[in-house]
Design a protein around this nucleic acid. Structure first.
Lengths: 116, 116
DNA sequence: CTGGATCCTCAGGGATACTG
DNA sequence: CAGTATCCCTGAGGATCCAG
């Protein structure tokens, strides 16, 4: 077996970038929330209903995280009952590439493993 | 605000696919390991040295997971000291799209948030 | 060297109740 | 409705020791 000395030439900074991305999208909720919101502006309960199994507490926390990372925008209307709308930023739209890739691979993998 | 009734038309099965993908790639090690192995066949310690912060226990477990998902292949040479080589499968190569997307977005996000 | 076995810690995340 | 506060538990992941 030949040992190439430069076989990881393309993955020093790249690995960092991937790690950065994963750090922002970590947990099992962030991407689901973003997908929901990329489909259009929604209210808190609306998101909660759409994402199966998420608790209010988690949704609240995740939305705050995403807001800090400038991926979602929170807009409060002064009304009763309270109305708060969430939507994605331009920056979040750049994630669609990632989402598409994951979606395609998800299909592929399911076919490979389960539907073999 | 107008409410579209079909604003989530494109994300029922798609969401499932994304969730499937995330389930296979969960944790912070799987993708790093795959990236390392996509760069070439490697031995256990070699991977461990390449991935910063991973413990032997984790690496062992993650490799087993990846093997079960048919993403890596384990090859044992009967020798002393023991030699075990890991490499990626064809199926793992289809992940490169995902990895590229994550890498690109990682760079983009870093520029957006940190280097603004 | 390649890991399995064990023990431990801590953060992710669930359930419930409560406020404005 | 839109959350916050609290309590609790599970499981990811680290450290260490040990065997083939």
């Amino acid at each position: 077996m030949k040992q190439e000395t430069q076989n990881n030439d393309c993955s020093k900074a790249d690995l960092m970038a991937v790690k950065d991305a994963l750090e922002v999208l970590n947990g099992r909720w962030k991407l689901q929330i973003l997908i929901a919101l990329l489909n259009g502006t929604k209210r808190f309960k609306q998101i909660a209903r759409e994402i199966d199994g998420i608790s209010d507490r988690m949704l609240s926390k995740e939305l705050k995280d995403l807001e800090e990372n400038q991926l979602v925008v929170r807009k409060v209307y002064d009304a009763f009952p309270p109305i708060v709308e969430y939507s994605t930023t331009k920056h979040a739209e750049t994630l669609s590439t990632v989402i598409y890739a994951l979606r395609e691979w998800g299909y592929l993998h399911r076919k490979k493993i389960i539907g073999k």
